[in-house]
Structure formats: C-alpha cells, structure tokens
Computed example of a mutant assay.
Amino acid sequence: MNKESKIYIAGHRGMVGAAIWRALTAKGYTNLLGKTSKELDLRDQTAVNQFFEAEKPEVVIDAAARVGGILANSEYPYQFLMENLQIQNNLIDTAHKSEVNKFIFLGSSCIYPKMAPQPLKEEYLLTDSLEPTNEWYAIAKIAGVKACEAIRKQFGKDYVSLMPTNLYGSHDNFDLKTSHVLPAMIRKFHEAKNSDNKPVELWGSGSPMREFLNVDDMADAVVFALENKLPEHLYNIGTGKDLTIKELAEAIQKVVGHKGEIIWDSFKPDGTPRKLMNVDKMKDAGWKASTDLEEGIQKTYQWFLNNQDKFKEVKI
C-alpha cells in the first residue's frame, strides 16, 4: 500500500475511526480523508455520490455506524436497522461504482446466531436465529458483509469484512443510556466512588461471558488488512479470551477504586449467554491482539478522567 494513497475513513471521529486514523498516521500514511456527519450525511446517497466524485478516494474504510447497547437497540430498532443499512449501502455501492478496489467493512460479533457453538467461527454466519436484543443492528451488518462478499465474488475486488468482538478504549461512549457495558461500568463505578462509595446496580445476573478488544488493537488489525490482501472475505477480530460480566465488573471496580457493594438486577436482560470469537483465521493470516485487558481498562479509565468535562455528572 502506497503511503500517499488517498484513504477515506468513514466515521473518523468515532472511537474506532479515530483509532484507525491514529494508527495510519503513526505508520506514515499522509493522505487520509475524513468528514464529520455535519459535513457529509452518509445516509444521503446523493451526497455520498458527490463526495466520491469530488475526492476520488483510492481506499475506503467503513467505520461509520449507529451503535449502542441493549437499551439503545431496544428503544430504537428502526433507526438501528435503517440508518446502518443506508450508511453502509451508500458507501459500498458508491465505492464499487467509483472503481475503489480496496474496501474494509467493519461489523460486529453480534452478526452470529445467539446459540451458535463457541468459540464463534466465521462459517456460523446465517446458520440460526439472532439475539433479539440487537437483531436490528446485526441484520444491517450481515447485509454489509454479504454485499462485500458479492462484490468480491462477482467483480474480483479486494472487499473484506472484519468482525470485532466487544470494543473499548479511548474516545468511547460513556453515556449511560446508549453506551456498551464496559464504558458504562467505568462511569457507574467512578461516580459511585465519588458519592461515598454508594452501591452500584448492574443489569442482569453477571453470568454471561464476553470478550473485549482494545480499540487500538482493532485499528492495528485494520492496518494489517489494508497492507495485506487477505484470501477470504470475512475475518473475526478478537483476543480469543473471555470472562464473565461479574468478573469484568470486579476488574473495573478494582481499577476505579470503588469500595461499595455491587447489586445485580436479575430482572433485566442478560443478552447472549456467550460471545467468544474464534480468531484462528486472522492468526493464520499473521495478526493477533496484544493489549492485556487490565492494562486496557486502566488506559480507558485514565482517558475518561482526562475528559470528564465532556460528560454530565449523574447522581448515583
């Protein structure tokens, strides 16, 4: 890959897109292109077409999506389905029509069936029903995976889909209504600590198992896919290790320094029982994650502390 090639990173202000931008800059790439949602509405097909005509990117990395946890998916199913379809369809189709030969599509491990065998292999896609609490987002992402596969199959272009496990890190979303489990826990424990170590109430039983990948490792995987022509269309990106939500809560509580009680609300949904990724294909290709979870939590908490002015205090 030429270091001067024009690379468009869709969603470059988000957690994943920003990490990819940092990683590419660190490796000497000098012609990166990004637009905010105000500058370019990716849901608008005409606007996307005009952007590609004007800028003529050579590579597209799709890190743009509407994302959120169980609560957000439950309250806004239509937006999670339709807006993600609009964003990715506009990018994939316009890139193809604009003769972009390298496209990296980012999805999520939620594309796999709820009760698929563990660890999750790429070939389990579309073999059973999805987890109901995030099926809207998952269906959109599955459509993106299949679109890239179809272009690869029919036109021979290097369109590849990377499916990360649960991501966390700097620039994460710490809004308690729309965030994922790890950043939400960091904020809850922090604010409870500052409220005389009051008890922290968490959703579910704490028994589901989850895998977590630092966003800088994810960015490194994207750079790897950019610089290498991977032989297949779909790859899982993760650590290959998981832990229970209860163990995660205790690890975050320790890092934050909260001394109070943890209360589990078992009337709230747990979501998928387990989501561990099989990452053998990516390892065989030559890439693996490198950030230890406790180290990653510490770095994420430090970023949260350094950026507290961005978050409105919530009374516990």
Rank of each mutant, 00 (worst) to 15 (best):
F103T: 03
F103P: 03
F103I: 07
I104D: 03
I104Y: 09
I104N: 08
I104V: 11
F105E: 15
L106I: 15
G107N: 07
S108T: 15
S109N: 13
C110F: 08
C110R: 05
C110I: 08
C110L: 06
I111Q: 07
I111K: 00
Y112F: 15
Y112P: 01
P113Y: 03
P113E: 09
K114P: 00
K114V: 05
K114F: 00
M115L: 13
A116W: 00
A116C: 04
P117C: 03
P117R: 05
P117Q: 08
P119N: 03
P119F: 01
P119C: 13
L120M: 08
L120W: 03
L120V: 04
L120F: 01
L120K: 02
L120P: 01
L120C: 02
L120T: 01
K121D: 06
K121Q: 14
K121G: 06
K121C: 03
K121M: 09
E122F: 00
E122A: 06
E122N: 00
E123I: 02
E123M: 02
E123C: 07
Y124D: 02
Y124H: 10
L125G: 03
L125C: 02
L126A: 13
L126S: 13
L126H: 08
T127Y: 00
D128H: 00
D128G: 04
D128S: 09
D128A: 11
D128Y: 01
S129W: 09
S129I: 14
S129H: 11
S129D: 10
S129Y: 07
L130M: 10
L130F: 06
L130Y: 01
L130D: 04
L130S: 06
E131Y: 08
E131Q: 14
E131D: 15
T133Q: 12
N134V: 01
E135D: 07
E135Y: 08
E135I: 04
W136Y: 15
W136N: 12
W136T: 14
W136A: 12
Y137P: 02
Y137H: 09
A138P: 04
I139H: 05
I139F: 06
A140W: 03
A140G: 15
A140I: 10
K141G: 04
K141S: 07
I142D: 02
I142Y: 02
A143I: 12
G144P: 03
G144D: 07
V145E: 13
V145Q: 08
K146L: 15
K146H: 05
K146G: 00
K146Q: 13
A147Y: 00
A147R: 05
C148M: 10
C148P: 02
A150D: 05
A150R: 11
I151N: 05
I151T: 12
I151F: 00
R152L: 05
R152K: 15
K153N: 11
K153S: 14
K153V: 08
K153T: 13
Q154R: 14
Q154V: 06
Q154D: 14
Q154H: 14
F155Q: 14
G156D: 11
G156H: 12
K157C: 12
K157R: 15
K157N: 07
K157L: 15
Y159I: 08
Y159D: 11
Y159P: 04
L162D: 09
L162C: 06
L162N: 10
M163R: 08
M163S: 14
M163W: 01
P164Y: 11
P164Q: 13
P164E: 07
P164G: 12
T165N: 09
T165W: 01
T165P: 04
